[in-house]
Write a protein that binds this DNA or RNA. Structure first.
Ligand code: ZN
Ligand code: ZN
Ligand code: ZN
Ligand code: ZN
Lengths: 166, 166
DNA sequence: GCTTGACTCTGGAGTGACTACGGGGTGTGA
DNA sequence: TCACACCCCGTAGTCACTCCAGAGTCAAGC
């Protein structure tokens, strides 16, 4: 059985949009595939595996630059693995920082949502009132003026990993 | 007391980068301020309040388009507040979805990090092995092929709200 | 008077990871 | 022959900033 795929088949097999595959190729994450006589990309199982690896790393929110480095480790297994550890550590730290601020966010939004009673005019909406009041500096940490060490956790990029169709 | 600020003062007062302020102006979130004779922007306290409102909403990860809508409600308090509720509900749903996938991410990454033992060659690194194995489809939900309802929670944009210097 | 430095102005480009589009070529079943 | 699905390429758009170059403005110091 010859497992030669065109881009659409590869995309369907991996659950990845074709445009994304071409993007990975353009940015050097996927090697340039062979071409059929008509110019269509011709992929083999190795491409599928590599693409799945990339998508799995992306599902872990690992940035493409780091995925590239991981792929180099896969290609060169004789390299030192300390860098892999550090990479995953950094990723974990990023995710934990985001997680923490997400939790704070969730709490704030949940309490905010509870502020809207029966009022139906925006001028009487508790949500809007709360937002305006908070912006004035009451009970909010997002815009304290003279605070020295008031850095928020950085948020980095979004993973998203959405698949188009089954 | 005349509280007329130049852009740098406004930025310092609100803890916002000047570039960000100009960006908000360009995109219509902040109204075009008056200009001094030398062409410098001249802001008043209303601008500061509006900017703080925007930053507070951004700290809640509310996208700028929605912030714009909220500002319209502030300007027109006679409008129906149902839209505010729905907006906050949607935001809360987004945040909760992200939170959930962040938690899953944290678990996956934490277990992944534990995979690296004493090995110092990438070829023997448990992390890399696990990543490759997971990409092949073992024990991972990120790239199941025939699953019908396998949509991942969408991740939307990042807030970041970082302040430059106190 | 001249220089230095801090501040401001403008328009434009870059970031990450896609996503969408326009204008065309290819291949197959009716 | 025609419709339609698939493929090609290059470019531009998304979001919320962030950075830059090149120029103008202003007060203080010498
Ligand atoms: Zn996976
Ligand atoms: Zn309400
Ligand atoms: Zn706030
Ligand atoms: Zn290791």
């Amino acid at each position: 059985m010859e497992t030669v795929m065109r881009i659409g088949e590869l995309g369907a097999a991996a659950g990845v949009d074709i445009e994304t595959i071409r993007y990975y190729e353009k940015t050097g994450l996927l090697p340039d595939p062979a071409r059929s006589t008509n110019g269509y990309r011709a992929y083999g199982p190795a491409h599928l595996e590599r693409l799945a690896f990339i998508r799995h790393c992306r599902a872990l929110d690992i940035p493409l630059a780091d995925v590239k480095r991981l792929l180099e480790f896969v290609a060169c297994p004789e390299n030192d693995c300390g860098d892999i550890d550090r990479l995953i550590d950094a990723q974990l730290a990023r995710v934990r920082a985001r997680l923490k601020s997400m939790q704070a966010l969730e709490r704030q939004l949940a309490s905010l949502r509870g502020r809207c009673g029966v009022a139906h005019v925006a001028g009487d909406c508790g949500i809007l009132h709360e937002l305006v009041a908070a912006a004035r500096g009451e009970a909010c940490a997002c815009h304290i003026e003279g605070l020295p060490g008031s850095k928020k956790a950085e948020m980095s990029t979004r993973p998203s990993v959405r698949r188009s169709g089954a």
